[in-house]
Each structure stands twice: as structure tokens, then as C-alpha cells.
Design a protein around this nucleic acid. Structure first.
Lengths: 343, 343
DNA sequence: ATTAGCACTCGGGTAACTAGAGTGCTAACA
DNA sequence: TGTTAGCACTCTAGTTACCCGAGTGCTAAT
């Protein structure tokens, strides 16, 4: 168990290092007003903290740097979420100032502003597209043998795929088909589209449309929405601003991870509730072993959720980011729920 | 005027430097089979070439490096576009192997493959969206006071905007409006949409729809398509692979330029025909003074054009890139024109 | 005209030294 | 007994000195 004094010293050390990016020494600390001890005392305590694994030295006679365990303890027990400065609040709230009507726009904008405010990279995950409800289906012929299939969902999102019309299908067949589909499938969530498509429309289609099979396959493809489309980035390049990253190779690895959509679920686990902090090697991806990631979820209505992640160096300003994410998560939930309720 | 021998030495020097990224010395060169002169002779010639401004030394006793003037002369007079290896051709042609029906998809894919093949950054500009023709307009109500306006164009592109329905507008008003719009505006290029919207539909709308003004404004907004949507990147991170870029600050500047859509027209001048090479400071943007950019245009049908750009270090493999762009430009033109003609 | 020879230059690597910041330990102090 | 002053020690970062090697420019021989 740590003494009061050790806690204080650990906290101040982490705070100082977060702020300065330099190893902190006992002299430096003793000058701070909140530390009434002499350098020698601090040295003793620091030696203990190092023994316990909370601090590290970069070399034998350097100041101390928090270890991952140190950061972990700091965020678990020492984080006093100070209120955000008014200016930050104003900036964050500016996300909602123009009356925007699209969920997507709000999320995009959040990513941008969040990254500007933090100087870290922001990743936002929109609500599961699968929960959105089909408002309208249509097929617009483009040429004699191609057409575009369009699905409009209740949140105003429009998904479209161009496809080749199989030979032997007449315009009137398509007409019929789209009518049947609209009759049966409006109001169905995208997640169920697949199933309902087969269950409910198959037999009817077969009766009315010749060669319905090929048309069918195409529609099915349009109904499968890729996950990546739902991820929004802000400040991808902010890593380059961090003095902690000087190794080009590491930057490359990190950016590769963010560029490739397949890694996103590892950074931003879908479906976890509340705020989480992953520090350094606690992250699943080895490319992120020098990063910390703070994630928080937000809700839209009772069912849908999304997440926000901030990716920065381990020496991240946890206090500030946590406050910001708390605020934004609440605001987003409120605002998006309001927009959603209006339906 | 340069002698034959000087030309040869200049060419080989540039080739060697492009390949090795190291200053080339007289000994090195003399070992090459195409150079039958002694190091001393080469030294003399190189000294002359330096005097003429084609070569530079990084320091007094180093080998030579091409100057911008040297590169310029090289690309203007010394570039012997050797045929592409079969493998490159196969890879490039693989862009079209799956039968894709969307222009956008083909272009996206070109950007990706081109960047993978070159290890540089590829930027592709699609044909001017303004020239695409309206196939269908529709408005889908989402809630009591919001709806989404959708424009489908002849190339299968779908543009959509959510908007707030002004108070006092009934669903039947919208119904009427959309019918009128479709009657009058299908077949109109997006560029003219604005004008035609005002000229042809204003008076009719006024007669049939109450408070047509607000609805009108909204539709107008949807009709203005932003340019940026038409730009596709491949291998944004490839700069990090180039040994020429070690300075993080410069990388940052460069990436900033590419991230911000507003600079794209400076990199990729719209409307220029044929192949162009801009070397180092010939580029308009100071962030790109260490880069070379090769651009080429392609055509779709008789009217529409797009461009391809490759951004790499000045020490770029001009020969290879030029051949590739020549090939791709032709292929893209052919293939996209074919897709376009089908309409 | 070409080239061999040679003195010279300069970057980059290595070793030696120094200053400074920081530590750990011991002994004195309250 | 906990705290602190003092001091010897350690290690980094910066500077200087040095050398090696690749490369040059010039001159004289071919």
C-alpha cells in the first residue's frame, strides 16, 4: 500500500512528465509548491516507487518516467477530473451549433473538432448501420443493361450499388420487383434485410418476375453494408506533432494500422459501455504499444450505440481527455437521441 | 551545347542516383559497362556538367547529385521510355479484370494499384461531376419535418442531402414538386441544374406548390456538388517509405497539403491535356519543393476528362512512371469511354 | 585528347574529455 | 525516527580530436 506522500509524488511526477515530456528529477519536483519536501526525501520515495514498479529511469542517473503500471495507477486512482475550461466547452458544443440534420455529419464534425482540440487522433464509430430501418428501396435504370439500386434508411443515409441487369429481365419486371420489395421491406432494419428478403419476398417474386434469382443476388449484395463506412477519423496526422514519436518506422506502423480498416475493431471494441483507458501494451495491436487509447460509448435512443476513441502517446493528457470525452459522450447521446426521437 | 559524352554521363549519373539514392562518384561510374572512360575523364566531364548547372555536390569532396536543371534536362531529352515489364502491365490491367460497372470504382482501384506498383502516392481526379446527367430526382420523407433529397446521375453516382421541410409544406406539395422536377430536369447535366432549376421550374412550381421558395433553396444546395468528392488517393503513406524524406517536419507539411482538399487543384491542374512533369520547385506549393509530380490526363467520351498524378521524391523513377501513366491513361480512357458509350 | 598519379578535402565513425543533471548513501539534525 | 544536507558517483549530451575512405582537382605523362 502506498503512503499519502508516495501518492502525491507519483501523481505530481506523472503530471509533470505528461506536461514536459522530460524525465522528472527530485530537484525539479521539490521546487513545486504542492511538494513541501526536500529533494533527498523525494529521492527516497522515488526509489521506493521505482522498486514497486510505478516509475522507471531511462538510464542510471536520469530523472524518472512513469512506467505503464505507473500510468495505470495514475488513471485508476489519481485522476482528479478537473472541470474543463470554458473555452473547451464552447468549442465542443460548437459541434451542434449549426442545426445539422444528419447523424453522419454530426459525427464527422465531432471527429474533426475533437482532434483539433486535443492534438491527438480521434476515431468515431457511428451507430450500427444494421439497426437503421429501410425507408425506401428503388432501382433506377442507367443503361439498357445496368441500373443502380438504392436503399434509403430512416437516418437519411443512402446506400447505392450499380449492378448489371441479367439478360432477359424486362423493365416491367424490375418495376414489379421494386414494388413488391417496397411493400414488404419498408420498416425492416438493415440487419434483418437479408433474412426477410428471402423469407417474405422470394415466393411472391417467383410468381411475378422471370429470372428473379440474379436480381435477387444483386440486391442482397447492396444490403450488406461494410463496417468501415461507419468510421470517421479526425487528425490522422496529429501523431506527427507528438515529440514522443520520432521513429519513422513506428509512425508508419501506426498509420498503417489506422489506414487499414480491418484493424479498427481492435482499437475500438464495439459494444463496450462506458469509458475505458488502454495504456501501451494493454492495446491489442503491437503497433500501438507506445500509445494510449481512451474510448467511451454514447447512446442513441435505447438501442443504438457508438463509440469515440482518442489515440495519443502514453504520455497523454488523461485528465483533460477524460473530461472532454465525458462531456462529448453525453452531448452526443442527448443530441443524436433527440434527432432520432423526432422520427 | 552538350557533347555526346556529357549526355551519356549525365544520363547515367541520373539513372544511378535514382536507383541508389547515393551521390555518384567517378569511380563508380567508370565501372559501368556503358561507360568506357576512365575515372579521370569522367571527373573532368562532371566538373563541366557541374559548371553548367546540371549536377551538384553535396559537399566539396562528395560524388555528384543531379540538380533540378539536371533532372529537367534528363526528362526532356534523355528519357528513353523503355517498355514496361510484362508483370507491371499485367498488374495495371488487373484494374479492369473484374467487370466493374461504376466509374468511381475503377478510379479508386486505379489509385490503389498505381500506388502499390510505384511506392509513390497516386492521386486520381475523376471526370467533372458537373457533366453528368440527371437520371432521376427523388425526395424521401424521413420524419414529419425532415426528408432526404436524392439525385441519381447517369454514371450511377447518387448524391443525397437531408434537409428540414419548411413548415406549412404538405406531403402532397412535395409529391407535386418532385414530379415537376423530374419532368423538367431529367437529362440535364449537373452543371446546368442550377440555371435550369430557376429558369424552367420556378414559374410552374409557383403555381402548384405553396411556399416553394424554401424547398427550392434546399434543392439548390444539393445540386452543388463539392469538388473534393471527386479526388481519390492511393498510398498516402508511401512518402514514409522514401529514404529521401527523413525530416518529420517536411513530411508533415507534405501530408497536410494532401489532406486538405483545397490544395489539390495546385497539385493537379484541372483541364491540362497530356503528360506533364513538375520537378521540385517547379511545383506551386512550397511544401512540395522536394517532390516531383507527374500528371497525365485521360478522356471519357469526347467531352469528359480526368487526371492522374504521381507524387514522389525528385529522385523519382521517371522512366518507369511515365511508361505506366502512358499505359494507364490509355487504358482508362478506353475502358471508361466504353462504359460511358453503353448508355 | 586521355589517363595515371598524387595531394587535398570532407563526412562519418570512434575515442577522449567535460559539464551538468541526477542519483544513492551516509551522517547529521530536529 | 523521520527528514535533510552533503558528497561521491554515474550517465548523457555535447565538444574536440583523430583517422579512414571515398572522392575531387590538378599536373604531368602517355
Amino acid at each position: 500500500m502506498l503512503t499519502e506522500r508516495q501518492l502525491l509524488i507519483l501523481k505530481v511526477t506523472v503530471d509533470d512528465y505528461i506536461q514536459s515530456a522530460q524525465p522528472v528529477g527530485s530537484n525539479q519536483l521539490s521546487k513545486k509548491s504542492e511538494i513541501p519536501f526536500s529533494p533527498a526525501t523525494i529521492r527516497n520515495e522515488m526509489a521506493d516507487l521505482e522498486g514497486l514498479g510505478f516509475l522507471e529511469k531511462t538510464h542510471t542517473s536520469s530523472g524518472r518516467v512513469p512506467s505503464e503500471k505507473g500510468y495505470r495507477y495514475y488513471v485508476d486512482h489519481l485522476l482528479t477530473p478537473k472541470p474543463l475550461p470554458q473555452q473547451d466547452i464552447v468549442q465542443l458544443r460548437s459541434i451542434f451549433q449549426d442545426k445539422i440534420t444528419e447523424t453522419e455529419e454530426v459525427i464527422k464534425r465531432s471527429a474533426m473538432i475533437l482532434s483539433e482540440l486535443t492534438n491527438y487522433t480521434a476515431i468515431l464509430l457511428g451507430p450500427d448501420v444494421g439497426k437503421h430501418i429501410v425507408k425506401k428501396l428503388s432501382i433506377v435504370p442507367l443503361t439498357t443493361d445496368t441500373a443502380v439500386a438504392i436503399i434509403v434508411t430512416d437516418n437519411g443515409h443512402v446506400e447505392n450499388r450499380v449492378f448489371t441487369i441479367p439478360e432477359g429481365i424486362s423493365p416491367s419486371d424490375i418495376e414489379k420487383m421494386i414494388n413488391i420489395l417496397n411493400e414488404r421491406l419498408v420498416g425492416v432494419p438493415l440487419n434483418d434485410l437479408h433474412r426477410r428478403l428471402e423469407q417474405e419476398t422470394m415466393t411472391i417474386l417467383r410468381q411475378h418476375v422471370k429470372r428473379y434469382g440474379e436480381l435477387f443476388t444483386t440486391l442482397r449484395q447492396a444490403a450488406v453494408l461494410p463496417h468501415e463506412e461507419n468510421v470517421y477519423f479526425g487528425g490522422k496526422l496529429n501523431i506527427l506533432k507528438q515529440p514522443d514519436f520520432h521513429d519513422i518506422q513506428k509512425i508508419r506502423n501506426l498509420m498503417d494500422v489506422m489506414e487499414g480498416a480491418k484493424h479498427i475493431p481492435m482499437i475500438l471494441p464495439i459494444g463496450t459501455q462506458g469509458l475505458h483507458i488502454r495504456i501501451g501494451s494493454e492495446n491489442a495491436l503491437s503497433a500501438m504499444e507506445d500509445c494510449s487509447v481512451i474510448t467511451v460509448s454514447y447512446d442513441i435512443g435505447e438501442e443504438q450505440t457508438g463509440s469515440i476513441a482518442i489515440v495519443g502517446p502514453k504520455r497523454m493528457d488523461y485528465k483533460r481527455i477524460v473530461s472532454m470525452l465525458d462531456l462529448l459522450s453525453g452531448d452526443l447521446s442527448k443530441e443524436l437521441t433527440r434527432m432520432f426521437r423526432a422520427k
